[in-house]
Amino acid sequence: MQLDHLKQQISLILDGSTTKENKLQAICDYLESEIPYYDWVGFYFKNGDKEELKLGQFTGEPTDHIIIPFGKGICGQVALSNENFVVQDVSEQDNYISCGWKVKSEIVIPIFVNEENIGQIDIDSHTANIFTKKDEELLEFVCTKVAELI
């Protein structure tokens, strides 16, 4: 993984002159196309004043998980913990919401605006034990840049 190149491309996407929604979709599309083991890439955002997340832009197979209550699944846990969550083998998680039998690992990184967790980026992989510190670094960068956009 060439972090510098990926970060540069993400910055170019976010610096473009299009809508916020189009930029977020472009990030999903770019990450899914550039990193072979990113099989589903999506953004979830806090749904107003409700204690739930709502699916935003994503790339990959459609999901039934449009709304996720805080505390439920990996995304819901990140909404409460405000911390990165890397799951190398989803079968070992008790509080995991299955998005499909192909998903073997997941990484979720929160997005903070003014120190408030307003959403997250969620990546699913069909390969177990695949995520590294480089993935966390890249996705933390993405979340920091997205926070500037919002």
Rank of each mutant, 00 (worst) to 15 (best):
M1Y: 04
M1W: 03
Q2G: 05
H5N: 11
H5L: 13
K7P: 10
Q8G: 10
Q8S: 14
Q9Y: 03
Q9S: 05
Q9C: 02
Q9E: 13
I10C: 08
I10F: 09
I13C: 04
I13D: 09
S17M: 03
N22K: 14
K23N: 04
K23S: 03
A26P: 00
A26H: 05
I27W: 04
D29I: 08
E32S: 15
E32A: 15
I35M: 02
Y37N: 09
G42P: 02
Y44A: 11
F45R: 06
F45V: 08
D49G: 07
E51R: 14
L53W: 10
L53S: 04
K54S: 08
G56N: 03
Q57G: 02
F58H: 10
T59P: 01
E61Y: 06
E61V: 05
E61F: 03
T63H: 01
T63V: 05
T63Q: 00
H65N: 12
H65F: 06
I67M: 12
I68E: 06
P69K: 08
F70Y: 15
G73N: 04
G73F: 00
I74G: 00
I74T: 01
G76N: 03
G76D: 08
Q77D: 08
V78H: 02
E83K: 15
F85S: 00
F85V: 00
V86A: 06
V86R: 00
V87T: 11
Q88A: 11
Q88E: 14
S91Y: 03
Q93G: 05
Q93E: 15
D94Y: 04
D94L: 06
D94V: 07
C99D: 10
G100H: 05
K102M: 07
K102Y: 02
V103N: 06
K104A: 04
E106D: 04
V108I: 14
I109N: 07
P110R: 12
P110G: 11
P110I: 12
I111S: 12
F112C: 06
F112L: 14
V113D: 07
N114R: 13
N114F: 10
E116Y: 14
E116V: 15
I118A: 11
I121L: 13
D122W: 01
I123D: 01
T127S: 12
T127D: 10
N129K: 09
N129A: 08
F131S: 00
T132W: 05
T132N: 06
K133V: 15
E136V: 09
F141R: 01
V142W: 03
V142K: 01
T144M: 03
K145V: 07
V146Y: 03
V146F: 05
A147T: 07
E148F: 08
